[in-house]
């Protein structure tokens, strides 16, 4: 069952990644990237890393992708032809870096001989919501509480900057 699910999610992830880079419209690309991240979150769940899966959806598929979409819609970039037709140094450098990363990934994959990674008992106990919650509310309680203050001041500060001066309205 787990194996079948893995193949389903993995196909979905690879397919949506390909669709991301191949689709013509940037908005479609961004939406395919969301699908890619959600299916990756599914793979994390299969590896018993619940917390990572939730964070993947909340942070990447949620917050960061919304930012992506906003930027795409505000900037209105659909002229991708002109970006890649120029042979600038920056593009060449980007391709070089991409090539290096791809090579590294292939090297790592080629070195692996098993079918699926073995999940040890230790790995499953660390990544659960339960284990992380326990650590967060005992050992790391203090930084957790201060983070609450940090988020409060960020929200109050943002509203403070955004609000208008009542006097200047008149």
């Amino acid at each position: 069952m787990v194996t079948y699910l893995f193949f389903l999610l993995a196909t979905l992830a690879v397919g949506s990644a390909l669709a991301t880079i191949m689709s013509r419209s940037t908005v479609n690309s961004a939406l395919f990237l969301v699908l890619n991240m959600v299916s990756l979150a599914g793979v994390y769940l299969l590896l018993k890393a619940q917390f990572l899966a939730i964070i993947q959806i909340l942070v990447y598929a949620g917050a960061i992708m919304v930012l992506f979409l906003f930027v795409i819609m505000l900037l209105n970039v659909d002229d991708e032809q002109t970006i890649f037709s120029k042979k600038t140094f920056r593009n060449a450098f980007g391709f070089l870096l991409g090539g290096i990363v791809a090579g590294q990934l292939f090297y790592a994959i080629a070195g692996y001989t098993g079918v699926l990674p073995d999940i040890s008992a230790e790995m499953t106990s660390v990544g659960t919501v339960e284990a992380i919650g326990k650590t967060m509310f005992t050992e790391y309680l203090f930084p957790f509480e201060v983070t609450a203050i940090l988020l409060t001041v960020a929200v109050v500060g943002a509203l403070f900057i955004a609000q208008r001066n009542p006097k200047s309205q008149n």
Binding site: V146, I149, T152, V153, V156, Q163
Partner: peptide, 14 residues
């Protein structure tokens, strides 16, 4: 804006 004081106090906590 009196929010200034709240922000100063949060800064002090930090």
């Amino acid at each position: 804006f009196s929010e200034i004081y709240a922000i100063i106090l949060f800064a002090t906590t930090g």
